[in-house]
């Protein structure tokens, strides 16, 4: 099963105090950022800091991602610096085509690391969205494609709103491309970190759309995101009953099972299995099926 990536929080790559808080924040992943949060004259300093942080700090179960700069600027220099430290994943901004992903794949493979380093293309332009399926399938190291809502909005000349109508189609296309390629779909940040209700509503909506998680820009957002992306007791109980009912039906040679008066078919069973996998990953209590 793919890694759990409900939340991933951006941490500025040139701020030691924020980087070293990373392992304590409870997010599924931290993104040590070398791009937008680092000024051009500090790119060199951030590379050394992020590289040393990955080598020295114990991030525990937290996945360590590095967002490099675009390959058209100094992304390759970033890769050369950080790859020897062995991050878990590289976030590639401004991803617009297969070639960019393959350039990063080549750098990873040439670094001869003993561990796997995943590639997470960040798709944040009209062109990137139209090529999302090609990007998602460009390398076996791509484990998720991620959406950058702010840059995308600017690229298409739209106005960013709280409700996000302007990014609905882009988000939908990204989810469809990701699932067609068999990788995760991860959503953008919710920029107003004082608007908890807005974050909650938006995260509920993207979960319903098929996103597997989203980015955070403030530690206070992590708990809300996890709250929505963590299966409830009722969902787990229902999933257990669905799986049990399907097993009984299969034992009887029947393809159809019924739980709570509703027919259970293959997509529902698969959804139930996914819920149980997440619950197991999070060590949540899994009840016995009801007879």
């Amino acid at each position: 099963m793919a890694r759990l990536r409900r939340s991933r929080i951006y941490l500025p790559g040139n701020r030691p105090r924020m980087i070293q808080k990373g392992p304590l924040l409870g997010a599924d992943a931290v993104i040590l950022d070398l791009e937008d949060s680092v000024s051009p004259e500090q790119k060199d300093a951030a590379r050394f800091l992020v590289t040393n942080a990955i080598k020295s700090l114990n991030f525990g179960e937290t996945e360590v991602m590095v967002r490099i700069n675009p390959l058209s600027t100094c992304g390759l220099e970033d890769l050369a610096a950080v790859l020897p430290a062995g991050p878990d994943a590289i976030v590639v901004p401004k991803s617009e085509n297969r070639e960019g992903v393959q350039t990063v794949e080549k750098a990873i493979l040439q670094s001869n690391l003993s561990k796997r380093v995943a590639i997470l293309p960040l798709i944040e332009s009209a062109k990137g969205i139209l090529n999302a399926y090609e990007i998602a399938g460009a390398s076996t190291l791509v484990e998720a494609i991620t959406f950058g809502g702010e840059d995308f909005t600017q690229d298409i000349g739209a106005t960013r709103t709280r409700e996000g109508r302007e990014i609905f189609l882009g988000r939908s296309m990204l989810v469809i491309a990701a699932k067609a390629a068999g990788v995760q779909a991860l959503d953008t940040v919710f920029s107003d970190f004082n608007d908890e209700e807005g974050l909650r509503n938006d995260t509920l909506a993207i979960k319903q759309m098929g996103f597997d998680g989203r980015a955070a820009i403030h530690p206070s957002q992590i708990e809300i995101i996890h709250d929505i992306y963590t299966p409830t007791d009722a969902e787990i109980r229902h999933a257990v009953n669905v799986i049990r009912a399907s097993e009984i039906a299969r034992g009887k040679g029947s393809g159809v099972a019924v739980v709570n008066g509703k027919m259970i078919d293959k997509p529902i069973i698969e959804r139930a299995e996914k819920i149980i996998r997440i619950a197991e990953r999070l060590d949540l209590p899994i009840p016995e099926p009801e007879e």
Binding site: A45, F48, S56
Partner: peptide, 17 residues
């Protein structure tokens, strides 16, 4: 109050510069 990794990174940066 910098941690060791940050001290080393800053010295590396200054030297490289």
């Amino acid at each position: 109050g910098a941690l060791d990794y940050a001290i080393r990174a800053r010295v590396q940066t200054a030297i490289e510069r």
